[in-house]
């Protein structure tokens, strides 16, 4: 493309503007995007990094000022039980929700992709929770999880013939994370289903036709046509779900603030801890330290994912 321009005869002084223009054109087009990235992503991160070495407070007596405290925030962070608990909760959530939600989404997509009457209705039904605000979902589910006569308790009692007694889902330390996972999957799975559905519908039907003529069973068609053809879709779903899962905040925060909750360390996530320390306790420096450490962890995790899951691209 630009090769033609750079190889233009450079002898005549009047034509000199051409190569310069050519060199700057891509930057010119990228500028708006780069500027936004710089202002809203790079700059805040650099600020967080700088602040994490200070004792910056949210609201303070101005005479006290902000001081450099070297690694104090990081030292305290690694001594803080709440930090390790939050990290554990985050990884627990990601490890369970990402595979489960993606698999469930694929199953639902396969179901609603059937050419049956009413498939559209089911698509709508499965997608509806996604269109509902998470705050509303969390409040409704916290009612469903009610300790004595909640719907979930009755349902569990019914299917286990009363063997599993009523549980206080949101207040038992061991149950609160699974409860949050269940409601998160229920709320989010519709979106991934839709992505898988789009992937499924872009698979050419003649592949299946040919397979059928060759005598391939439904199982074989799924394993050797559907799954390989969905590879890029699956990678996209896995990566976005992982990122969403790391950002877990709303539903857990609402559960934390609805009445007496389970011990906070049994379900507080990194993002929650950041908000609690930075905004509620006013320790901006400390919260910046948390965000830097969290950023490094998530970055490492995403890079690992990129290495393990290679996309097939038409354009390299």
């Amino acid at each position: 493309m630009s090769t033609a321009v750079t190889h233009a005869p450079a002898g005549k002084p009047g034509k000199r503007s051409a190569p310069i223009k050519g060199r700057f054109t891509p930057w010119f087009f990228a500028a708006p995007g780069l500027l936004l990235l710089l202002v809203f992503l790079v700059l805040p991160f650099v600020l967080a990094l700088v602040l994490s070495f200070t004792d910056q407070r949210l609201v303070t007596n101005e005479e006290l000022g902000t001081d450099f405290v070297a690694l104090r925030n990081y030292v305290r962070l690694f001594e803080d039980d709440s930090f390790w608990a939050a990290l554990r909760n985050n990884f627990y959530f990601v490890a369970v929700v990402t595979p489960l939600q993606s698999a469930l989404a694929l199953v639902l997509a396969l179901l609603v992709n059937q050419k049956l009457a009413g498939a559209r209705i089911f698509r709508t039904i499965y997608f509806m929770p996604v269109a509902t605000t998470m705050a509303v979902v969390a409040v409704i589910w916290s009612l469903l999880y009610a300790p004595d006569q909640g719907v979930i308790n009755r349902f569990v009692g019914l299917i286990t013939f009363g063997m599993v007694g009523p549980h206080d889902w949101l207040r038992e330390p061991g149950l609160v994370m699974p409860a949050v996972m269940l409601l998160s999957i229920w709320q989010g799975v519709g979106f991934q289903m839709l992505v898988f559905l789009a992937g499924l519908q872009s698979i050419p039907l003649d592949l299946y036709e040919a397979a059928k003529l060759d005598g391939a069973t439904v199982k074989q068609q799924f394993l050797y046509i559907t799954l390989p053809m969905l590879k890029n879709t699956t990678i996209f779903v896995l990566i976005t779900t992982t990122i969403y899962a790391f950002q877990l905040y709303t539903q857990a925060q609402i559960i934390a603030s609805s009445g007496a909750s389970a011990p906070i360390d049994s379900f507080r996530t990194m993002v929650m801890l950041m908000v609690h320390e930075g905004f509620r306790n006013g320790k901006i420096g400390y919260a910046s330290g948390i965000s830097v450490v969290f950023f490094v962890i998530v970055l490492a995790f995403s890079m690992l994912q990129r290495v393990l899951l290679k996309e097939e691209r038409a354009v390299q």
């Binding site: 007496a260 906070i264 360390d265």
Partner: peptide, 19 residues
């Protein structure tokens, strides 16, 4: 005080839950 009350309330909540 804001830190005292946050820390105490969190401790009470955990204790009541069996901590």
């Amino acid at each position: 005080y804001p830190m005292i009350t946050t820390a105490f309330a969190e401790a009470v909540n955990n204790i009541v839950a069996g901590g």
